[in-house]
Design a binder for these strands. Structure first.
Lengths: 118, 118
DNA sequence: ACTTTCTTCAACCGAATGGTTGACCAATCG
DNA sequence: CGATTGGTCAACCATTCGGTTGAAGAAAGT
């Protein structure tokens, strides 16, 4: 399993079945059997998927009689959005600066790509 | 390789080295050798990482003499943020409704967690 | 033309992943 | 108690993944 939390979250959501499970849990809690019903895989496979989601902190399981209702832990999403936003913003900022440079360029419609030889 | 774009993007970012590469590219374009320098893995390994990022649409390679400058394609992030936001919002909305229900509960300051024995 | 530099392709290896089947635990119902 | 229901654990299998080494491509430099 991945060591860092961010890798675990990204990795957990890299599987379409797991994303689907998250989508369904966003509507409301559900048991393993309920979650497994729509798919043509065994309940054990879904249980494994849930373990991956749980290890990523995306999901928690409580106990209620012999059922184990699964609950979506949506706050972990912030970990990702923060990371994404950071670099997206940085890339956009860089893009903006590049535009400024291009706009400030007096002539040279085709700007020299490397160290410009004076 | 994963079929759907969303899986590819999540999967690509599930690796810390690849996230690091994205972070460095957000500052500016770089060649494979430059990107490989900080790590103690071979250049080929980094080239593979870049292929994964490219297949996910996160990165593009152009040609410039014998160098292949790598460029960050930040707009693909939107794919993820849209997915995340959708379900986070839904989960929060559900949470809010639950709060309303609890608030509307007339008595029972400590709501019985299970079947309430009258 | 030969060499050097930057990069990728191909084959291989060990570890992790997603799936299976079969046995097992835990709690409720008869 | 015994049987049933809901869920997990364990072992196994095929595939994928991240890494290696070695060879090959492609563009410049000499």
């Amino acid at each position: 399993m991945a060591a860092d939390p961010l890798s675990r979250v990204f990795s957990a959501l890299a599987d379409p079945t797991r994303r689907d499970i998250v989508a369904r849990l966003s509507v409301g809690d559900a048991t393993v059997n309920e979650l497994a019903a729509p798919y043509d895989v065994t309940v054990q496979a879904v249980s494994k998927h849930l373990k991956v989601l749980e290890d990523a902190g995306l999901v928690s399981r409580s106990r209620e009689a012999q059922r184990r209702p699964v609950h979506l832990e949506a706050n972990v999403f912030d970990l990702m959005t923060k990371w994404i936003e950071r670099y997206r913003r940085q890339a956009e900022e860089r893009y903006r600066r590049l535009d400024d440079v291009l706009a400030a360029m007096p002539d040279a419609t085709t700007p020299p790509p490397e160290g410009s030889p004076s």
